[in-house]
Amino acid sequence: MVLVTIAFFAYATEVAFSMKNNDDNDKTDFDFTRTTKSGRIGSIMMLLALFFLFGGVLFRGLSAQRVPWGNMYEFSITGAFAVTGAYIFGVIRYRLRWLGLPISFAVLLTLGTAVTVLYRPSAPLVPALKSTWLAIHVSAAIVSGGVFLLANAVAGTYLILDNIEKKGPRPTWALRLPTLEALDQLSYRLVAFVFPLWTFAVIAGAIWAESAWGRYWGWDPKETWAFITWVAYAAYLHARVTIGWRGRRAAWLCLFAGSTFLFNYVYVNIWGTGRHTYSGL
């Protein structure tokens, strides 16, 4: 119980830090000389948030004495961790700092709902979830989800900037953002990087379903939507690589594919009827 409380405080601190990060990045609107500094502070805050989130997930796991992926509260905090991790990775590898504003907002939103609406005290798992595949299947799905959402943020930025550029030159706040081609290429790379992992997550789920439910595929709503997401991203990759879609069309398809994932997470978990609903969220 103490551990849960500590974890809880960790989130609160973390949320405050993310907020600060938000504000800092907002200053980009007004002042360029100050942004570099505040942007850097934002990144450091996000890095701190990453550690706190990791602590939160870890303590949750310790307090429940199992992998902390048994209900939606736990998925959400782990998802927030995954998105933040993907963002930090992006900052280091692809200079993605400009994405800080939408990403920290998304993380904040996720954590907000997790702490207020979805919170459940830690409890042991129901028998069907007791399997090594829980760790494998869920972690693969969560990481995939984190990167899908990152790709969505990039594709969304592409569409907004594209609209702005159609009307005229970029306003000052957008000058430091990458070129349209770079955004386009980046969202493709993210998807291409994580598509095999998503495929693996679905397969791991199928293997687990075979041992828990007696069939590897049964068109359970969750399975169906995972399949739809898979098909949508497969279509996206084909459209880019084979037909040569670029720009707006590709970005819309990417957004569509990402939204099927979100729909699966939100709709099927809360209002769905399938076998993926456990223990009241």
């Binding site: 068109w219 169906t224 399949f227 098909v231 279509a235 769905g272 399938g274």
Partner: peptide
């Protein structure tokens, strides 16, 4: 066809 397959799977859920 690929996209159609995705759409066709929806009513079942």
């Amino acid at each position: 066809l690929l996209l159609l397959l995705g759409v066709a799977a929806i009513p079942g859920s």
